[in-house]
Design a protein around this nucleic acid. Sequence first.
DNA 1: TGCTCCTTTCTTAGTCGCTAAGATGTTGAA
DNA 2: TTCAACATCTTAGCGACTAAGAAAGGAGCA
Lengths: 151, 151
Amino acid sequence: MAEVPSDVLERFAWYAREMSALTVMFHSRVAEHMGLSATDEKCLDLAMRADGALTAGRIAELSGLSTGAVTGVIDRLERAGYVRRVRDPHDRRKVLVEVTRQNAEKFAHLFEDALASVEEVLSGFTPAEIEVLERYNKASIDVFRARVVKG
Amino acid sequence: MAEVPSDVLERFAWYAREMSALTVMFHSRVAEHMGLSATDEKCLDLAMRADGALTAGRIAELSGLSTGAVTGVIDRLERAGYVRRVRDPHDRRKVLVEVTRQNAEKFAHLFEDALASVEEVLSGFTPAEIEVLERYNKASIDVFRARVVKG
DNA sequence: TGCTCCTTTCTTAGTCGCTAAGATGTTGAA
DNA sequence: TTCAACATCTTAGCGACTAAGAAAGGAGCA
């Protein structure tokens, strides 16, 4: 295990904090753009990032909201045309939340912008350096996820 | 400007999205730990990251809340002992929000944990690689900030 | 100085989303 | 079939947010 100088550590802690604050702000902006509250956008993001449809109950678990609150979230998202309620044919108690295609097209430019930013940053690095960055991102996600999940 | 292969771009977009979601979750957890709402924690973070004391009005601007809401936020933070109201001696209309030392000590372990995570990630990289990572972090913050600020 | 207008924060009324608890409808097993 | 467990929705009550305006201090000018 290599030693990490404390000044390096401090700078990276600052980077993390700065990115963190920017991320929270970014989410607010995206939500505003889409005419949604931060909570609604967060749930929509969960639904989009899941492979396959998510149940209402699972969204409640993942978001930390009560099931009652999730009903309201889905109501608003459905009314705004971002998702659709589909009853699970195998267990009709469950409500699957399907992200509609309409949404993907309506906000494609937001994702294209984000992709352009990523490209702008990466264009300053050689392929060898990008490999280092990939390793860094994977390690960061692993460590961070372990921390967030365990509490 | 180097070309960036599209598969690399897609992976990095995924990393960004994953980190983003984890960051939002992490903020919720920290807030919960501290007995604060996400909004209150966000404002406290703003106050801590500012050099010197912030005015109530500036917090409203930065957080996007109304001044009335900020009054409530500061009330709660003050009651919980995280900050203190100090009238600006140069302009007694203003209220400076000072982060109290008590807070820093009470939640030192949260920051130490975060620092340990950063160290864990960085320990897998050589000094030369860490320089690449610093350049990457700075570039990411610059590009991201420009995007968030301009809207 | 006295007057006016601006700035900054706080207060209040009304709105909206969240939680908790219970209602409704569905499933699976005895 | 009957019943307990489950998934979602509904409702009452609460708390935070916005908008508008009050209160208090500051700054410019006759």
